[in-house]
């Protein structure tokens, strides 16, 4: 019998949520700890987690998903949840990038996503800089876009780091190692002309845009969902510009897919490690993660090579 990695992760998250619900007092204490600097109109006692405890239902993160179905007992909780006001600052990110959800499992996953997003932005900055320095970019419009996009990704990284701090985490400050090793470095070795440079940039922008759109459906607070798409929408604009350079259709779909989001191996955990390592590693043996569209696939042979496809680029590295 085969289990998909996504299903395993879902089950793990559900287990974490159930555990949190069972450890009521502990969770409340942790919730207060994690929410120490959060704004909450009613204080910790009215947080979503506290309400979940009082109502005896899982938190929103704890909606148990089995085979695509959603157990909706916690709809009551969601209806009772009272998120704080949205306060968008000049930076484009909400000044208070958290609301009231204090479930530790939620916070942990939120921080994973924020760290991962930060690592993508830092990787984009370094990749654009490498492209600029490569001497392969000769079109002034492409050069102008590369500089602007590099700077915008730098701003995005800063905003995400601030959001990480606001959410109670330690800001991540490094490029995404998994994508650097499995996608960018191999691609950089093969850059031969301006189009190949633009193609690599487009792959990264696509991975970022689709990861953020997907994350908007995963983050536990409305404020963080809005914040991530305040950036994701811009990455999508980058996509459109880069596609134009390649004479491709600039708006190829009516709804942004999430098939090309980064694979879970690229997630950055609390220890700064990525993906499975952050959750304790794979159980061994061959694993394959294939997104719905089939365009983002990672296959890891047991102790062997890793093949990663992101944004249409495929690379294989020795294990």
């Amino acid at each position: 019998m085969n289990y998909s990695r996504d299903e395993v992760r879902r089950q793990l998250r559900a287990s974490r949520a159930d555990q949190a619900a069972a450890l009521g007092p502990w969770r409340d204490a942790l919730a207060r700890l994690f929410a120490a600097d959060r704004r909450s109109s009613g204080g910790p006692g009215t947080s979503a987690a506290a309400k979940a405890h009082l109502l005896g239902v899982p938190s929103r993160r704890g909606f148990l998903k089995i085979g695509g179905a959603t157990v909706l007992g916690a709809a009551v909780l969601a209806a009772c949840s009272d998120d704080g006001e949205t306060d968008v600052a000049e930076s484009g990110l909400p000044a208070d990038a958290t609301t009231t959800t204090a479930d530790p499992a939620d916070v942990e996953f939120d921080l994973d996503l924020l760290r991962t997003a930060t690592s993508l932005e830092i990787l984009a900055v370094s990749t654009y800089q490498t492209a600029i320095d490569s001497g392969l970019v000769t079109n002034p419009d492409v050069a102008q876009a590369a500089v602007l996009f590099r700077d915008q990704h730098d701003d995005h990284a800063g905003a995400l780091q601030q959001a990480t701090t606001d959410a109670g985490g330690t800001p991540f400050e490094e490029a995404n190692t998994f994508l650097q090793d499995n996608v960018v470095t191999p691609a950089l070795d093969g850059l031969t002309d301006e189009d190949s440079v633009v193609r690599l940039a487009l792959d990264l922008e696509t991975a970022a845009a689709e990861t953020y759109a997907w994350a908007a459906g995963e983050l536990s607070t409305t404020t963080l969902r809005q914040a991530i798409m305040g950036i994701g929408g811009v990455e999508a604009r980058h996509q459109a510009v880069l596609r134009g350079f390649l004479d491709e259709d600039q708006v190829p779909v009516a709804f942004l897919p999430v098939d090309d989001r980064v694979p879970e191996e690229a997630f950055v955990g609390a220890d700064g490690g990525s993906g499975a390592g952050a959750d304790g590693g794979d159980a061994g043996g061959d694993t394959t993660t294939t997104t719905a569209g089939g365009s983002s696939t990672t296959t890891t042979a047991g102790g062997g090579s890793t093949t990663t496809t992101v944004g249409g680029s495929t690379t294989t590295t020795a294990g």
Binding site: Y212, W214, A216, G233, A236, V253
Partner: peptide, 27 residues
């Protein structure tokens, strides 16, 4: 709307539309 919708699936839906309108604006 992403700062308002509480449900993750609804947020995901909005998040997949916002980028397309943005790309239209680019064109």
């Amino acid at each position: 709307s992403l700062g308002v919708l509480q449900d993750r699936d609804a947020a995901l839906a909005a998040a997949t539309v916002l980028p397309i309108e943005s790309q239209h604006a680019v064109v």
